[in-house]
Design a protein around this nucleic acid. Structure first.
Lengths: 231, 231
DNA sequence: GGCTTTATCTCGTAT
DNA sequence: ATACGAGGTAAAGCC
């Protein structure tokens, strides 16, 4: 992510035409090439922006533009729609770049979060001798919902979903590949747990040696009297 | 505006509960106290945020939190709803503040400027034989959007609006009164052109002998190949 | 992948 | 002030 504070004017042409007069603003260039133009007020919506997929190119200002005080010209075009955003920069006050990496993303607490909490408390539902290591076990590619050990002490990675679909199996597969490369964890067994598991997902999981567990949410809630406290 | 790049986790409690696991993100603190938490991808929507009016306070982490690696705690609460956003900062990688001032704000040209340009180019939309005299024809009380002549060579004053309201008809009426006193122009016919004309405005216009024309912006754009050049 | 519904929606406008 | 509808809506859920 690149952060630039600059005196600039902005023109947008796409579904509509819009113009931002010259003023000092924040230009946020994300890793995917998308651009956000923010002022020091308003809500979270930028004054103007370009959504991915798009490309940012810097153009050399021509004589007229240079005479008008433009020192840099950014052109951001959307790859599909052809929408264009043109940023005319007059003066740069700040310019810094930062490596942020992939974000694990927002968890909206609802049924899945509650399911995770309940299963963590009732980890023996997976089998006798199972013990919880931790929830949200962090890996380089994101957090695994639950990490546990089975009766033999071997690691078990649990992926939780309300509706178990192929996507969830793929996700768990990626985690397992990564974790099995870690000598401190390997061998790691996979468990795909959901209130409902689609036949395709079940077939794929079994094909990859991943155990499928269907969870009874209501029964799990019934066992847990802390339910009234919610979280 | 303050920009902070930090390892942080975020919890939101308001209309819903949500959580962001520990990761490196951008924290944007606007002048009004509002906060935006951005990752290096996604759309213009932040991962999490607090809208104004709100207040940001920094809290000293307690022993447990400090032991967990939290060096700073930000608490942003909405003044009316009481929604709260809690940012647990583990490590700050960048921290800078910038004075941006008040933004002049976005001008949506789709409204009038673009319409005027398009209608000037496609003046025959008003009728066969129409010819453009000039845009922004100056009078003593201000510029008339478009001055043209009809097939007979008589003057036509065009008032353009995105949404045709009574105000626009009144404005055009004033121009027409003035221009009809000019022997070089008189008689001047009035045309009220807009993407949408309100019934009250239409009634008033017709009562004053002003012709109403509804413009199809998209069709006019489609006819204008200069649109593909963007600027 | 395409479609429908939702949103801590935001934002403007009319009442 | 509040209600209503559009948005460069974006994002989640569902078939």
């Amino acid at each position: 992510m690149r952060l630039v504070i600059a005196e600039c004017s902005v023109d947008y042409a796409g579904r509509l035409s819009a113009h931002l007069p010259l003023a000092k603003r924040l230009l946020m260039v994300k890793n995917d090439g998308s651009l956000l133009v923010h002022s020091d007020g308003g809500s979270y919506k930028p004054l103007n922006w370009m959504s991915p997929p798009c490309v940012l190119t810097t153009v050399e200002p021509d004589e007229t533009q240079a005479a008008a005080g433009i020192t840099e010209l950014w052109k951001v075009t959307h790859k599909k729609t052809g929408d264009a955003l043109i940023v005319s920069i007059h003066e740069v006050h700040h310019d810094s770049a930062h490596e942020l990496g992939v974000d694990p993303g927002l968890q909206k607490d609802g049924v899945e979060a509650h399911l995770q909490k309940l299963l963590a408390e009732q980890i023996e539902l997976l089998g006798d001798g199972y013990r919880l290591i931790r929830r949200e076990y962090m890996t380089a590619i994101g957090p695994v919902d639950i990490l546990a050990t089975d009766a033999t002490g071997a690691s078990v990675a649990v992926e939780l979903k309300r509706r178990g679909d192929i996507d969830g199996v793929e996700q768990l597969t990626r985690y397992l590949e990564l974790m099995n490369r870690d000598p401190l964890l390997a061998p790691v067994q996979g468990v795909f747990a959901a209130q409902e598991i689609k036949p395709q997902a079940r077939t794929l999981a079994q094909d990859r040696g991943i155990r499928c567990v269907v969870l009874d949410y209501d029964a799990m809630r019934g066992l847990d009297d802390s339910d009234s406290r919610l979280f």
